[in-house]
Design a protein around this nucleic acid. Structure first.
Lengths: 223, 223
DNA sequence: GAGGCTAATGTCAGCCACTGACAATTGACA
DNA sequence: TGTCAATTGTCAGTGGCTGACATTAGCCTC
C-alpha cells in the first residue's frame, strides 16, 4: 500500500482523494449508525461530519442504505472467490462449506484495511436488527445466491436453467447461513471466531434436520 | 356474507365502510402497480382514484409497500394454519411439505374473496421483479420462518433456543420455497396449478441436491 | 329524534431521502 | 500556463411519511 507496485499505475492525487472521501463517509456513517441507530441518523449528519455536500454523498452511494453494506460487500467477495478456488473433485456441498469457513478465516485482515473489525461486527449486528437494512441484506444475499448457483453449476458441468439442483442446494445452504448470522447477532460472542464456530456447527446439523424423523439423535446446546 | 350469522354481531355501517375503503385501496393499488409499475405509481394517484386523503391511506397501511402485501399476507396465513393441522405423527419435513401443497390447493377461493386471482398472480410477479418489494418480501418470509420454526419445535417437543434443528430445517425448506417462487415468476405458466406443481417438483430435489456427489442421478427439465 | 360521544377523515405544515440541472472548482496533461 | 474533464457544490423540486389539530359522521342514550 505504500510502495508503488510495478504493473499497476500509481493512482494520482485525484484518485487518492476520492478513496479518502469514500472511506471517511463509510467510517463516519458506520460510527453514527452503530451509536445512535440507523433511522435516527440523517444523511445530513454524515456529510456534515465529513464536510462534503449531500449531493456528493449520493454520488458515492446510491442510497443511505448502500453505505451500510460497503464493507459487507467486500466480505461476500471473499467467499465467492474462495469458492472459485476449491478443488473440482470436491462435492458441491463440501465446496460451499469449505469456502465459507475459509472466508471467515481470512476476513479479519481484509476488513481491518477499511474499518476496525469491531466496528464491522457492530455494524453487522445493526443490519440484522434494523428492519429496513435486514430487508436489503436478504435481497443482496439472494443475488449472491444466484452467482454461487452458477459457479456450482459450472463445477458440475450443468446448466442452471436445466437442472434445478444447483439453485436448490445453494438455497438450502444459504438458508442455514442466514440463520447462523441471525443467531450470532442475538448471542453474546461478538467475535469472528464465534461466527466461524457457529457456522461449522449449524452446517453439521443440516443433514440430520432434513431426516424423516428426529426422535433418534441428541440435540445441541443453545447458540 | 348476506345473512347475519348468529353468534357474531353484525358489523355496523361504520365497520362496513372501513372494509370497503380498505378493499378499494388494495384493488386500485394492485391494479396501478401491475399496469404502470410500482415505482411509477404515487400514493397520490391511488388516493385520488379512491377519493380519500393521503393521510387516510397511511392510516390503513403503514407504508406504500404494505398495501402490496395485503393479499400475500393472507395466503401465508393459510400455510401456517395448514401446518397447525398436520397429524403429529408426520415427520417435520413431511409436515412442511404437505402444508404448502395444501395451502396452494385452497388459496384460490380465499384470494377471490378480495381480488381477482389473476390480479394476485400478476402482483406476485411484480413483487419478485421489483427490488424494493422483493427485499420486503424476503424479510417478511424470514419472519414467517421464525413462526414456523416454533411450530415445528412444539410438534417435536423441543425448544427452538436449545435445539437448532427446527430453525435449520425451516431455513432450508424456505430457501427452496423462495427459489420456487422466483422460478415460477420467470416462467410462463402463470397459474396457481403451475406454482403448486413446481413446488412439488423442487422439494423432491432437495434431498439429492444435498448428496455428497451429483454425478449419479439424472437432471430434470427447465422450470 | 336531539344531542353528546367517539371513531374516522381531512387539512396543513414540515422532515427526510433522493434527483436533475447548472455553476464552480480542481487535478491532469499537453 | 492554459485547456480539458472530472469532481464537487448549489438550488429547486418530488415523493413518502408524520404530528397536530380541525371536521365529519356513525353510534348510543335519553
Amino acid at each position: 500500500m505504500s510502495v508503488p507496485s510495478p504493473g499497476t499505475t500509481a493512482p494520482g492525487l485525484r484518485e487518492r482523494k476520492k478513496q479518502r472521501t469514500r472511506d471517511a463517509l463509510i467510517r463516519v456513517a458506520l460510527e453514527l449508525f452503530t451509536t445512535q441507530g440507523y433511522e435516527r441518523t440523517t444523511v445530513d449528519e454524515i456529510v456534515e461530519a465529513v464536510e462534503v455536500s449531500q449531493r456528493t454523498f449520493f454520488r458515492y452511494f446510491g442510497s443511505k442504505e448502500e453505505v451500510a453494506f460497503a464493507v459487507q460487500h467486500m466480505v461476500e467477495g471473499l467467499f465467492v472467490s474462495a469458492l472459485g478456488r476449491r478443488p473440482s473433485a470436491e462435492g458441491p456441498f463440501d465446496a460451499l462449506r469449505h469456502s465459507v469457513l475459509s472466508a471467515w478465516d481470512h476476513a479479519g485482515e481484509a476488513i481491518a484495511d477499511v474499518v476496525p473489525v469491531e466496528l464491522y461486527l457492530r455494524n453487522f449486528q445493526m443490519i440484522e436488527s434494523t428492519p429496513a437494512l435486514l430487508a436489503i441484506h436478504l435481497r443482496r444475499s439472494a443475488e449472491t445466491e444466484e452467482t454461487i448457483a452458477r459457479i456450482i453449476a459450472d463445477r458440475e458441468g450443468l446448466d442452471v436453467d436445466e437442472d434445478p439442483r444447483p439453485r436448490i442446494a445453494v438455497a438450502a445452504f444459504s438458508g442455514v447461513m442466514r440463520v447462523t448470522g441471525q443467531m450470532w447477532g442475538r448471542g453474546t460472542d461478538q467475535s469472528l471466531e464465534g461466527i466461524r464456530a457457529l457456522t461449522e456447527r449449524y452446517l453439521d446439523h443440516l443433514g440430520p434436520a432434513l431426516a424423516p424423523h428426529w426422535r433418534t439423535g441428541a440435540a445441541d446446546d443453545a447458540p
